[in-house]
Design a binder for these strands. Structure first.
Lengths: 131, 131
DNA sequence: TATAGTAGGTACCTAGAGGAAAGTGACTAT
DNA sequence: ATAGTCACTTTCCTCTAGGTACCTACTATA
């Protein structure tokens, strides 16, 4: 990550953050694989590593581990380790993570309303005369 | 996609899309550089290429062109070419793009409320005992 | 004895996104 | 004659996220 994210020079509308105030949130919430993980944990409740892996399926265990650690560090999920044999680890969404639910619902709503418009725009663009 | 088998096992939520219904929207709206561009166009109105480049600053002209083309194809922005000398091109947000504004506002609100919680969670995680 | 199951860790490697820098075309101003 | 402007385009290069494959400890079960 960019380690100098909190430098706030007043006149510097140079970096992408001052050009876009939601850039930090986008980094945290909408980086690669985080939305499927958060969505799955929110939809199906507390789950073990292999359950997540099975539900998302195209993610590799290495990357799943990375993303889970990152989400845990950001406080969006909670990891519970049970020192049994074989080991058992459970992941669940945190309160902070659950506070994203209305946002996700909003996004799903926009998707339902406008995704076909994007598709149509693409078709128009692709069939238009390439001047 | 996987369209070969007729066996529909109920647990076949394999691809990341079925695991996360908002994945397509995230791809369209929150891919790299798209949020700063959309935010800038929404905040400052119709702008020329160099204005966008100056406001976002860390983006290179090559990537800015790529992202603008992509957003135009998706119908989120409108490009207007004026065949003058020197050439003049103006970009503005489309109606479809403007429909994202409440979503962005929602995101900004979440950011204002919870970004410091993420920061605190990170500090806690980093200072915790690494068992 | 061998195998399966769990939750990862580690080493190596590749593809592709993105950055740097220079070029382009048509015209104008000096 | 030369330089400058705009909106890119092109070429080359780097860097890293992510993929593949294999490894760990431990026990129950066959």
């Amino acid at each position: 990550m960019t380690a100098e994210t909190t430098t706030r020079s007043p006149a510097a509308s140079a970096d992408p953050e001052s050009a876009c105030p939601i850039a930090p949130v986008v980094d945290i919430v909408f980086s690669r694989w985080t939305t499927p993980i958060l969505w799955t944990l929110n939809a199906h409740g507390r789950q073990r590593f292999v359950e997540l892996q099975r539900r998302i399926a195209t993610i590799t265990p290495k990357v799943l581990t990375q993303r889970l650690r990152q989400l845990e560090r950001d406080g969006l999920i909670v990891r519970t380790y049970h020192p049994e044999v074989p080991p058992r680890v459970e992941y669940e969404i945190s309160e902070l993570g659950r506070s994203l639910a209305p946002l996700f619902a909003h996004l799903a709503e926009w998707s339902a309303t406008n995704l076909d418009k994007v598709d149509r725009a693409r078709q128009e663009y692709d069939t238009a005369s390439p001047i």
